[in-house]
Design a protein around this nucleic acid. Structure first.
Lengths: 106, 106
DNA sequence: TCAATTGTTCTACAATTTACGAACAATTGA
DNA sequence: TCAATTGTTCGTAAATTGTAGAACAATTGA
């Protein structure tokens, strides 16, 4: 497994991050990574084809929201929380809190 | 001028709000409304056709980010800051702060 | 070695989004 | 009344996005 490219912190674009988080599937992935910690792609059992899942992981990775670390036959995904907090303080926490609120309300 | 519809607070969708904010033109509008206060559409002199501007205002309005109040021949736009703060605490502030940061950095 | 596992890449397609010009609607002021 | 102002709506075109299947690549374990 070849390690994919990750954009450096200073190149992260706010609109790109917001866009990455604006999809229900991707926001769900981020929420899951935030609450359960780092996980393999397969552990997040998505309701879409694996090529589609790969697409969403790519959007999240290229926007700087997550990082992917190769490990054996799969990838371990994790939030780039510290990077995001440094570049856009409070943003990730606010989004995660809002996501939590929304799932509670329905 | 007929007053346009605005979605009630409890129906605001997080992904929809994030999507509305993920466009550079719309984020610029929001930033402008946040710093300069309520303004007419024309006062925000956009670099796009007025039909395109109308589209962006509509996206912001239907996502619940802004409200539009008819006044004479034009509309006065303003952020639904209190509503957003109530539904998604800290989100708007974090986005606005991030937008400010990004314009400073470049 | 070789099959199983995991995820990417390529290709294609339907749906959505952004953009613009032209026509239209509402209001104001001369 | 009527022209000017302001913004919406409609129709359309170009670009982007989300989705999936098929083929491919890398790693592990039998």
């Amino acid at each position: 497994m070849k390690s994919p490219n990750h954009p450096p912190i200073e190149t992260l674009s706010l609109t790109r991050v917001l866009y990455a988080l604006s999809d229900p599937i991707r926001l769900g992935l981020v929420h899951s990574l935030a609450t359960k910690g780092e996980q393999a792609c397969g552990a997040l059992n998505l309701a879409v084809a694996k090529s589609t899942a790969s697409h969403h992981f790519r959007v999240l990775r290229e926007s700087g929201v997550i990082q992917m670390r190769p490990e054996g036959t799969h990838f371990i995904n994790s939030l780039r929380k510290e990077d995001l907090d440094q570049r856009f303080p409070g943003l990730l926490d606010a989004v995660l809190q809002a996501a939590k609120t929304e799932t509670e309300i329905g």
